[in-house]
Computed example of a mutant assay.
Amino acid sequence: MQRAALLVNELTVDWAHGRQVAPPDTGPERRAAIQEALTAAGLPRSESLSPAHADRLAVVAARLRPAFGAGARTESMIEGLNQLLVRHAAVPNLHGHPDGPPVLAFHRADASLVDAWTADAATALAMVIGVGQGARLRSCEATNCERAFFDTTRNASRRFCGLSCQNRAKASAYRLRRAAGTD
């Protein structure tokens, strides 16, 4: 789930934290953005990620983007996820390194990096939606922020991608109340 949101945020978002951002538009820029985001999220960098992979992942991120939103799931969004699952051969599979225990993944052990990441991300989104928790796949509600996130709060009430957007929204609401004389 974390990697799905990371790809969407790094490769498709035009507004983040109140600022207009330009998604990277070349393979090397996309690769660098993904690597930096992986590091920032505490995930291992992928040295096998090439600029060509990053370009293909940008297409995938655009297909994953509609799953993150507060509204109802549309048939076209569901069909898009189903197409990704089929095209990238999503199938439960146990595999891992010889030194460690096997891990459950949703791609073949010999899958390409793009197929592996896409199958895992699309499966994670499909599982969340399939168990009735699709409302937890959200987009930030702050003005000028389109970042995607997975709401892990107990009552599914998270509205913002992070503290900076929450603080901006609360300060803006306070200024509006103050200007209206209701505070």
Results as ranks from 00 to 15, higher is better:
R19N: 15
T74M: 07
A4T: 05
P101A: 10
S157G: 12
R87K: 13
Q2S: 11
P44M: 15
V131K: 13
A70D: 10
A171N: 06
R159W: 03
L85Y: 01
Q166E: 10
N93A: 04
R63W: 02
Q2K: 14
A4D: 08
G132E: 10
R108P: 00
H88D: 08
S157D: 10
A5R: 05
R168C: 14
C165I: 11
V86F: 03
R3T: 12
L7K: 05
T182Q: 07
V103E: 07
P101R: 10
R63A: 14
E75A: 15
E75P: 03
V131A: 05
L84M: 12
M127Y: 02
T118L: 07
D14V: 15
A22C: 09
R138A: 06
R136D: 08
A58C: 05
S112F: 00
A16Q: 10
P23Y: 02
R45D: 12
K170T: 13
R147M: 14
D99E: 11
N167T: 14
G69P: 02
Q20I: 08
G69V: 08
S139M: 07
R158N: 10
C165Q: 03
A122Q: 11
E29F: 00
W117F: 03
G162T: 10
Q166I: 07
Y174A: 10
M1N: 07
I34V: 14
G80N: 15
E36I: 06
T152P: 00
S139R: 09
A156G: 03
T12W: 01
S48A: 15
I78S: 15
V131W: 02
S48F: 00
Y174Q: 11
E79P: 02
N155A: 10
A122N: 07
S48E: 11
R147Q: 11
D14Q: 07
A54G: 06
S139D: 09
H95N: 04
D25T: 09
H53Y: 02
H53A: 12
R158A: 15
S48V: 06
A105F: 00
A67N: 06
R65M: 05
V13S: 10
F160V: 07
R30E: 15
C165E: 13
R147Y: 02
R136K: 05
R19I: 13
A5M: 04
R30I: 09
R175T: 08
D151Q: 06
A109C: 03
T153G: 06
G162S: 11
R73C: 09
H88N: 12
V91W: 01
L125A: 07
Q166M: 12
R56W: 01
A89L: 08
A171W: 01
G71I: 06
A22G: 08
P28K: 09
T182P: 02
G42W: 03
Y174M: 11
D14S: 15
P92M: 08
S112H: 03
L84F: 01
L49M: 08
V21M: 09
R158C: 05
V114Q: 11
F160K: 04
V8L: 09
A37N: 13
A89M: 13
C165D: 05
A156C: 12
L38G: 05
G162E: 09
A22R: 11
R177C: 05
E79N: 14
A72P: 04
G132I: 14
T26K: 07
G130D: 14
I78T: 15
A119T: 06
